[in-house]
């Protein structure tokens, strides 16, 4: 079983594409943007590479130990998505990753100085970078499990996070207590949000690709603003 490890990630490996930064601002990928806007996107990507200090922590965890974290303070939705997925999972790993404080600080400075355009673009770049860190850890866990022949070619690894899909955000407390991500500079606020804010945490769930397929018709799905599960499920279908 994989021990707890700290990973340093190159910022350049996380920088989102210009199109995805614009899409985060509600702009259509095919839409023609003014030159100043495209310049701001390029500048934001450069600033992200310059300022981001991505780090991650990851540890494999057994099902029984994870169950205590998942149950948290007993505030999960009934049922929550992971109630169906976890019993079918073959391997689990806890993760947390951050792009660091400097980039967040710079976003604040840009808004303060009136450069809303670059501030918003850098904000989107940092959010995209944190998401990409999550995907990178998914791939890393999948590659390792595959190399060790612990999962097969039809298996998939996906990340699930407290605060989404019925897993109550208060479980962050238990997740942090176990993972101790303070070593990568992450702390938890009273509201269970992470500091620095451009960070992710969650559990990597390995198992047959079909366990990650579900109908997004849970009661909490109607309130979900991202529906990012659809893109994820699409990824699985493509691999199949």
């Amino acid at each position: 079983m994989m021990k707890k490890e700290i990973l340093k990630i190159a910022a350049a490996d996380l920088v989102p594409t210009g199109d995805s930064i614009l899409a985060a601002q509600g702009a259509l990928p095919s839409g023609k943007m003014r030159a100043d806007i495209n310049t701001a996107v390029d500048d934001a990507r450069k600033l992200f590479v310059e300022l981001a200090e991505p780090k991650a922590i990851m540890t494999e965890i057994g099902a029984a130990e994870f169950d205590l974290i998942y149950r948290g303070t007993g505030r999960n939705s009934q049922p929550a998505l992971l109630d169906f997925i976890l019993p079918q999972a073959s391997h689990l790993a806890l993760i947390a990753a951050t792009v660091g404080q400097k980039v967040t600080q710079r976003i604040g400075e840009l808004f303060e100085s009136g450069d809303f355009l670059l501030g918003a673009m850098l904000d989107a770049a940092a959010s995209g970078g944190a998401d990409e860190a999550s995907r990178m850890l998914e791939r890393l866990f999948q590659d390792r499990l595959t190399a060790e022949k612990r999962i097969g070619p039809m298996d998939e690894v996906f990340c699930y996070s407290p605060g989404y899909c019925g897993w109550h955000i208060s479980a962050q407390r238990q997740l942090f207590a176990y993972l101790q991500p303070g070593v990568i500079g992450l702390s938890l606020r009273d509201s269970f949000l992470m500091e620095p804010v451009k960070s992710i945490s969650g559990v990597l769930v390995a198992g047959s690709a079909d366990i990650h397929q579900f109908d997004d018709t849970f009661p909490f799905c109607t309130e979900c603003r991202t529906r990012s599960c659809r893109a994820r499920m699409g990824r699985t279908q493509k691999r199949q």
Binding site: Q25, L28, G31, I37, A40, G114, D115, F116, L117
Partner: peptide, 18 residues
């Protein structure tokens, strides 16, 4: 128009406001 257009104009507004 898109949000980036609003943000661009807002930045421009600041140039005058300052």
């Amino acid at each position: 128009i898109f949000l980036p257009d609003v943000l661009l104009s807002a930045r421009t507004m600041y140039a005058g406001l300052e």
